[in-house]
């Protein structure tokens, strides 16, 4: 069996990952950036100073949970596509996950897609809640999907069900 490299347990120990409590409360950014790469656009773009890199620039981005509103501006700007927004308060049964998406074709609002974990494996089916126009964010789309609550820590990708035209 293949050993999993990318798991929630691995990421949650890093300073960009929100606490359990914060995750349970409302929409919040989840930063899966774990190496000392010299990079800070997430810090620069955040209007509420919820992400801090500081000096040196190789610091891991640290999430200031109470400042974050989950606006998601940091999602498409991250060169590593390592930023997501999770909303565990979407409704009783479902959470939403907003993720960067740079493939064609784009899913449509309301479309059913397959939700994938960090290893590209199918987790469940998901519904597309919104699609942010890629043109607005220099060709990176932001897709928000709804999945059953228990999968919100696991789902980080999608695959379309429909066949390519």
């Amino acid at each position: 069996m293949k050993k999993k490299i990318f798991t929630q347990d691995y990421y949650k120990n890093f300073p960009g990952y929100p606490s359990k409590e914060r995750l349970a409360k409302a929409r919040v950014v989840v930063i899966e950036c774990v190496q000392d790469i010299p990079c800070n656009p997430c810090e620069t773009i955040c209007p509420r100073k919820a992400i801090v890199v500081g000096k040196p620039i190789t610091n891991l981005p640290r999430l200031i949970e109470e400042n974050c509103t989950g606006c998601g501006r940091c999602i498409p700007i991250c060169p590593g596509l390592a930023v997501f927004v999770v909303n565990n308060n979407y409704n009783d049964k479902e959470s939403t996950i907003s993720l960067p998406y740079e493939f064609l074709p784009l899913p449509e609002k309301g479309e059913e897609v397959i939700a994938l974990n960090r290893e590209g494996e199918k987790v469940c089916r998901a519904k597309v809640i919104s699609v942010l126009d890629p043109e607005k964010n220099n060709r990176t789309a932001v897709i928000t999907i709804a999945v059953p609550k228990e999968y919100s820590g696991e789902v980080r990708g999608i695959r379309l069900i429909r066949k390519n035209p």
Partner: peptide, 8 residues
């Protein structure tokens, strides 16, 4: 012909 980043 179509590319998500490079367009048409």
């Amino acid at each position: 012909k179509k590319h998500p980043i490079l367009g048409e």
